[in-house]
């Protein structure tokens, strides 16, 4: 039971391999897969499947013009091509586009005494992509979601009502979940979080915050 919650399910992996997943979700899959040999293997097989399906298509020949045009461009392609730049291996490859100088230098904002967050970007479907940083032993406010929430643990570990999660683990929480993640004592926890709709705080006092928070998603 616990095992299935730390990997994306086959529906997500298939959509990832087929290229039909919203990019914010694909980002989470990629961050997980980088640390997960099992899912790497499955994605290889899924890509092989895509390849075999493609081979079964009825070929549709291109024009001879297309070929001539392309052959004429090859030399100039080589001239303008840049060599790939060196990369920081401590940070997930797919997150380099947002994190240039390590986690410390991001514009973290205080959400609560225990939590800081930084928004990385928005996807075309409106989903919010952010990093959450929970201090050792720190707890998030109990919350549910109006939409799905995808989380990948990048550093450290946390636990909630359903179990303990460690670096690389992938979690999908939908609107029916109400949970309260707590970082473990041995270090701070950094997560990649993608939320499709605003988070609902369920505590008595923090419910007053909901209208304010929802507005930031408008």
């Amino acid at each position: 039971m616990n095992k299935s919650t730390i990997h994306p399910d086959e529906t997500l992996l298939t959509a990832y391999s087929a290229g039909s997943l919203p990019l914010s979700q694909a980002l989470c899959i990629s961050a997980h897969v980088e640390h997960c040999p099992t899912c790497q293997q499955e994605i290889k097989h899924l890509n092989d499947l895509g390849s075999e399906l493609m081979q079964q298509l009825k070929p549709s020949p291109g024009s001879t013009d297309l070929k001539a045009q392309l052959l004429a461009r090859l030399d100039s392609l080589d001239e303008t091509h840049e060599a790939p730049t060196r990369i920081d291996k401590t940070i997930s490859r797919c997150l380099h586009q947002f994190i240039k100088n390590g986690y410390q230098n991001l514009a973290w904002k205080r959400v609560s005494p225990d939590i800081h967050s930084v928004e990385l970007c928005r996807d075309s479907n409106g989903a919010k992509v952010e990093l959450l940083r929970i201090k050792p032993g720190g707890a998030a406010t109990t919350h549910t979601h109006l939409g799905d929430e995808y989380t990948v643990i990048l550093e450290g570990s946390f636990s909630d009502e359903s179990g303990l999660y460690q670096k690389g683990d992938f979690l999908l929480r939908d609107a029916s979940h109400q949970h309260r993640p707590v970082a473990t004592q041995d270090g701070e926890c950094i997560c990649l979080a993608v939320t499709e709709g605003p988070i609902q705080f369920t505590g008595l006092f923090s419910r007053l915050l909901n209208p304010l928070i929802r507005r930031s998603y408008a």
Binding site: S17, A18, G19, P22, L23, S24, A26, L27, S30, V33, E34, Q40, I43, K44, G50, R93, C94, H96, Q97, C121, R122, D123, S124, N125, G126, V129
Partner: peptide
């Protein structure tokens, strides 16, 4: 597949701020 994703991103009405390049490449 990666080229299709790029093409769709460039031509969608609401452009995603996420660059797919590093998401789909080199995860092997």
């Amino acid at each position: 597949r990666n080229c299709r994703i790029d093409y769709l991103r460039r031509n969608s009405r609401y452009v995603s701020e996420i660059d797919p390049t590093e998401i789909f490449e080199n995860i092997e």
